[in-house]
Simulated scan of single mutants.
Amino acid sequence: MTLTVEPLVGSTRVVVLAPDGRVVRDQAAEFHRFGISIVLRQDILAALTEVVHDPTAMLVVSADIPCQELRDVLDVAVATCGSSVLLGLTATTDTGAVGAALRAGVRSTVDLPLTAERLARTFRALPAKAASTGPIMIGNLTVDAARHRIDWAGAPVEASPREFAVMLQLAQNHPHMVALDELAAGYQGSSVDPYASVRVVINHLRSRIAQVTGARGTAIIETVRGVGYRLAG
């Protein structure tokens, strides 16, 4: 299977705030092919100036910024940016940083380094701004984006940032299925097999749920054979 995505309609300008240019993998021409214009800035004031001058520009903030400074940067970024702010995830990003970002008003996350296809898929999957930010409750399951928390009948279910992102995507689409291609989009451009990575995440989530519920995780996260996954209930 091959991940494919159509170019975005119109032109989307993206300002990336990061310590260095290694957070962007593709060349400018590849981003342009997907309807994306990339501007890389290492200074917060320079990045904010970009989004002030262009209120339609999206802002990606790398989680490589030191933790305390990152919280301050995200607060200012969300208050300043007229469009969407995303948190760029690295291999060392912890759950606490993602939870703080969501509470600050960040609309989504995207894995770094950035590729044109990964970024385009992330933009297409962004939740509507008008959508409720409250917890999603499906039977005994609660997925709370603001607190970055999964509960089963009040008991917390531990999850890594990637596992939480997958569970949130499943909850937001319940009772419908989420295609494997959509779940795998976050791994596009990385060195790992995106489909195998999704299956590993699903297996981890099922194991974590089973530890809390005592039931088989497959009874909570159902497989639509060869197509995708959905939450039961």
Score class of each variant (00 low, 15 high):
Ile36Lys: 09
Leu112Glu: 13
Gln169Lys: 15
Val73Asp: 03
Trp152Ala: 11
Ala185Tyr: 11
His176Ser: 13
Arg118Ile: 01
Val76Asp: 13
Arg33Phe: 04
Trp152Asn: 11
Arg118Pro: 01
Ala145Gly: 12
Leu170Tyr: 00
Asp54Thr: 04
Ala179Arg: 15
Met137His: 15
Glu163Phe: 05
Ala125Leu: 03
Ser197Met: 14
Thr4Trp: 04
Thr80Lys: 06
Arg118Tyr: 15
Ile138Met: 08
Val15Pro: 06
Val157Pro: 04
Ser83Trp: 05
Ala145Asp: 09
Gly35Tyr: 00
Thr223Gln: 13
Tyr195Asp: 11
Ala120Tyr: 03
Val212Tyr: 09
Val98Ile: 07
Ala219His: 12
Tyr229Trp: 14
His32Phe: 06
Ala159Leu: 06
Gly88Ala: 03
Thr80Ile: 07
Asp151Ile: 08
Val198Asp: 10
Asp111Thr: 11
Ala18Thr: 02
Ala210Cys: 13
Pro194Phe: 13
Pro66Asp: 01
Thr4Arg: 09
His176Glu: 09
Gly226Arg: 14
Ala145Met: 12
Asn140Leu: 09
Arg230Asn: 07
Gln42Leu: 02
Ala120Asp: 02
Pro19Ile: 00
Thr92His: 06
Thr80Gly: 07
Asp72Val: 05
Thr90Ile: 03
Gln211Tyr: 03
Val157Asp: 07
Thr213Met: 09
Asp111Val: 09
Arg225Gly: 04
Val85Asn: 06
Ala146Lys: 13
Ala79Gln: 13
Ser84Gly: 02
Leu170Phe: 01
Leu112Pro: 11
Ala185Ile: 03
Ala104Pro: 00
Gln169Thr: 10
Gly10Ser: 03
Ile36Glu: 04
Asp26Ile: 00
Pro55Thr: 08
Val201His: 11
Ala125Trp: 04
Ala116Met: 04
Pro156Val: 11
Ala57Leu: 05
Thr49Asn: 14
Ala155Tyr: 03
Leu86Glu: 07
Glu117Arg: 14
Arg107Thr: 09
Thr115His: 06
Thr223Lys: 15
Arg121Pro: 04
Leu112Asn: 08
Thr223Met: 09
Gly88Thr: 05
Ala91His: 07
Glu163Lys: 10
Ala47Glu: 01
Gly35Lys: 07
Pro161Trp: 01
Ala46Ile: 01
Arg149Phe: 01
Val61Ser: 02
His32Val: 13
Pro194Tyr: 06
Leu126Trp: 05
Ala131Phe: 02
Ser191Leu: 11
Arg162Glu: 14
Leu205Lys: 11
Pro156Gln: 14
Ser11Gln: 12
Ala91Gln: 12
His148Gly: 07
Ile209Trp: 14
Thr93Phe: 00
Arg216Lys: 10
Ala128Phe: 01
Leu74Tyr: 08
Val178Phe: 08
Thr4Asn: 08
Val224Gly: 08
Leu112Ser: 05
Thr115Trp: 10
Val14Phe: 00
Arg149Glu: 11
Ala153Met: 10
Ser108Met: 10
Ser37Arg: 15
Pro194Ala: 02
Glu69Trp: 06
Tyr195Lys: 08
Asp181Met: 08
Leu3Gln: 02
Ala155Gly: 06
Ile138Ser: 07
Val16Pro: 06
Ser197Asp: 14
Asn203Gln: 14
Val24Arg: 00
Tyr195Cys: 07
Ala128Glu: 05
Glu222Asp: 14
Leu141Pro: 05
Ser84Cys: 12
Leu74Cys: 08
